[in-house]
Amino acid sequence: MLSELISGERARTKIAALFDSESAAANAANRVQRTAGVPVGQVQLVCPGERHFGRKLEPETRGIVRTAIRAHVTLGLAGAVLGLIVYGVLYIAGNPAVVSSPYVAAVLAAVFGLVFGLLAGGLATARPDHQAVVTPVRDAIKAGRWAVVVHPASPQQCDDALKVLHGVSNEVVRTI
Rank of each mutant, 00 (worst) to 15 (best):
M1A: 12
M1L: 10
M1K: 12
L5H: 11
E9T: 15
E9S: 11
A11G: 09
T13S: 10
T13G: 00
A16M: 03
A17V: 05
L18C: 06
E22F: 14
E22D: 14
S23T: 15
A24I: 13
N27A: 15
A28W: 01
A29L: 06
A29H: 05
A29Y: 02
Q33N: 11
Q33E: 15
R34Q: 11
V40Y: 08
V40G: 00
Q44R: 00
Q44I: 03
L45Q: 02
V46Y: 01
V46E: 01
F53T: 10
G54C: 06
G54H: 13
K56D: 11
E58S: 12
E60W: 11
G63I: 04
G63S: 05
V65S: 09
V65P: 00
R66Q: 14
R66S: 13
A68T: 06
R70N: 07
A71R: 01
A71D: 04
H72S: 05
L75W: 05
L75A: 07
L75R: 03
G76R: 05
A78Y: 02
L84D: 04
Y87F: 15
V89T: 12
I92W: 06
I92P: 00
I92V: 14
N95P: 00
N95H: 06
N95L: 07
A97V: 12
V98E: 08
V99I: 09
V99K: 10
S101H: 12
P102F: 04
Y103Q: 01
Y103R: 04
A105Q: 06
A105H: 02
A106P: 00
A106H: 03
L108M: 05
V111K: 09
V111M: 13
F112N: 12
V115P: 00
F116D: 11
L118H: 01
A120L: 15
G121F: 07
G122A: 08
L123W: 14
L123H: 11
A126G: 00
D129C: 13
H130D: 15
H130K: 14
V133M: 01
V134L: 11
R138T: 10
D139Y: 11
D139C: 08
A140H: 08
I141G: 08
I141K: 12
K142G: 15
A147I: 08
V148W: 02
V149P: 03
P152E: 04
P152G: 04
A153G: 08
D160Y: 07
A161G: 06
A161I: 09
K163D: 13
V164S: 08
G167H: 07
V168F: 02
N170P: 01
E171G: 02
I176H: 07
